[in-house]
Design a protein around this nucleic acid. Structure first.
Lengths: 189, 189
DNA sequence: TGACAAACGGAATCTTACTTCCGTATATTG
DNA sequence: CAATATACGGAAGTAAGATTCCGTTTGTCA
């Protein structure tokens, strides 16, 4: 699509995909502890090849985070379509959380564990913030949630839920945490 | 007090204190990223001296966590003395959170960032769990909080609050997060 | 098919901390 | 005030990983 992809040699394009896929899988499993050597081995290429495609480990991990994060905007847009303002908020939290489940690397990124991962994805962030803000503002206006709720609360609360996800993998715990959070959003704080 | 302390040479005891103080301060400021060399320099001793007193960096950090954590049991016991069951729970959450504020290293430990810090402090953990469990059970029995609340929810929720503390230092944000959590504990989930 | 630019592989290099070691200095004790 | 056990300092040793480099291989194009 981009000129870079057009001019890439066939084997290079293939390898890039393989590296990306391997990185996604290992990053999801082990977080930022993945080693480049591991990724290379898993992708069936040499270390040098990984570095040809991604100048640093950081750049590769940022790319992982970016592609996953871009899903958030889609989710927010879908949630916004729901008629019931309260359900839209609930949906926003629940589906965002589900999106993160099972990807330890992304969970760490959500938790801010390494701020570096978040540099360079401002565009994706903004694309999410817009619809999410509308969802929350609408619920506030409708009296469906506590009146002082703002978009800024979302990352904060999600960060908490994500940390439960990360440190108690399995699924049950974080859903309970989410329930408690959603209960706390009820109007009449 | 212990035989170790009694038989310690005077300069050694003094240095141990200095190292401990330096470690506490730097650990609070920088978390587990503190370097032994930094701690030594800050304490005004050589690297070797740090290692004479604490066999590994891990041991030193565990000691930091242990002393801080032992405060938790005291807090829980104090909260238990309050008559109002609901207030006792609120107090438990609030004061625990306040205890963590300002110590980034401990915050990371609370968030489980390195499970190693938690090995070897089982005793302190148990001393806290007992009164905290009683506080929560009493509130449940009194109908002051949602009936499915258990002690197990405490670490989970605190972990979330702590992550807000860590990633948004300054004070305002985490208190809001705490408010939302406390609101979510109300009966009638 | 031959020439050549583009990619590849992975050993070697660099970097960053933790940890060890041992010659030197100092507190303690009779 | 020795004699001696303790403790100290910090250079050197290791280890773990990221990153570079360059000789070799492979796709592309005329």
């Amino acid at each position: 699509m981009t000129s870079i992809e057009r001019t890439l040699r066939a084997d290079a394009r293939r390898n890039r995909e393989k590296i990306f896929a391997a990185a996604r899988e290992l990053f999801a499993r082990e977080g930022e502890l993945v080693q480049i050597e591991e990724i290379a081995a898993h992708a069936g290429v040499g270390i040098g090849t990984v570095y040809r495609h991604f100048p640093t480990k950081q750049a590769l991990l940022t790319e992982m985070v970016r592609t996953r994060f871009s899903r958030f905007a889609e989710i927010a847009i879908e949630c916004e379509e729901m008629e019931d303002p309260h359900e839209a908020v609930t949906c926003l939290f629940r589906r965002s959380a589900e999106e993160v489940e099972g990807d330890a690397g992304f969970q760490l990124a959500m938790m801010g564990s390494d701020q570096l991962h978040w540099e360079g994805i401002e565009q994706e962030k903004a694309a999410f913030a817009a619809p999410a803000t509308r969802i929350i503002d609408r619920a506030v206006a409708a009296g469906a949630v506590r009146e002082d709720l703002t978009f800024g609360d979302f990352p904060m609360l999600m960060c908490g839920i994500t940390s439960t996800m990360y440190y108690s993998p399995g699924g049950a715990e974080w859903r309970r945490h989410l329930d408690l959070i959603l209960a706390g959003l009820r109007p009449g704080s």
